[in-house]
Design a protein around this nucleic acid. Structure first.
Ligand SMILES: [Mn+2]
Ligand SMILES: [Mn+2]
Ligand SMILES: [Zn+2]
Ligand SMILES: [Zn+2]
Lengths: 130, 130
DNA sequence: AATCAACTGCAACAATGTTGCGTTAAATAT
DNA sequence: ATATTTAACGCAACATTGTTGCAGTTGATT
């Protein structure tokens, strides 16, 4: 098995995730890193962090892709079954760790992963009533 | 209000949707159209059809975006609350019109749209046990 | 300190989607 | 039927996002 190394760039990316309360896109991460590494390197770090179940990917209806830290990496069986919220006003994406959809599937499908994203207005934008 | 016109290209795109049982990407549509129009035109037609609630967009975890016909355009209040299934083997995406997730949201969020995509193996690929 | 492979930077590329603008052709009125 | 209006089109040019190959670098281990 391939071992994974702790490089300066990887540590920096992890710090950015640690500081952020919302999910981040590749571009947002790059800006916060102030070009301490190449953008290709960021893509590769994100891939590794996903493989190691440290972050997870969130794909939004508008096509944007963001990443967020997993708050359950300690669990033996790692499963991302929580929902995400995408604000149509401020475009922030947050994990709703406690929102887990229930649903009934037709037979003959094998479900391995789910992606449940809700969009609308987040508490912040709702209060400043647009 | 801007009126919408029935052009040859738009009719051709609609026929492609009519024939297809699964959701289609922009590229798949372009191939089936045999270059009867420019690819930019297809993008613009898709935008119009979405505005008119004739098709809807499906955004997958792997970043691919597909479109499918709405089977409920007749309803007075048009809402896309059904799930979609994305097969990790054949990459086909199908509407699961009868699968509608139930969930409990925290207060202070205003939900306007949901995107619920499940992935795994579709009935076809499950039977030919990969 | 030497070794080894994971990691990086760079360049080059592919895929996807957008915009501006001059031209074409639906829909409507004459 | 013909003229008018403007939605829709083709084309070129561009932006963004993500991928790949390869030579060089650096983290971890011995
Ligand atoms: Mn998670
Ligand atoms: Mn629909
Ligand atoms: Zn917001
Ligand atoms: Zn399949």
């Amino acid at each position: 098995m391939k071992t994974t190394r702790n490089t300066a760039a990887k540590t920096a990316v992890l710090e950015v995730f640690e500081k952020s309360k919302t999910a981040l896109s590749h571009t947002e991460i790059q800006k916060q890193l102030n070009d301490i590494c190449d953008r290709v390197t960021i893509y590769r770090i994100l891939d590794r962090l996903m493989n190691d179940d440290i972050i997870h990917k969130i794909s939004n209806l508008d096509g944007t892709v963001k990443y967020a830290k997993c708050n359950h990496s300690h669990q033996r069986v790692h499963i991302h079954n929580h929902a995400h919220f995408s604000c149509e006003n401020c475009h922030e994406i947050t994990c709703l760790e406690n929102v887990k959809p229930s649903y009934i599937m037709p037979h003959n499908y094998k479900v391995k992963e789910i992606n449940f994203t809700l969009s609308g207005l987040c508490p912040n934008c709702l209060n400043s009533n647009i």
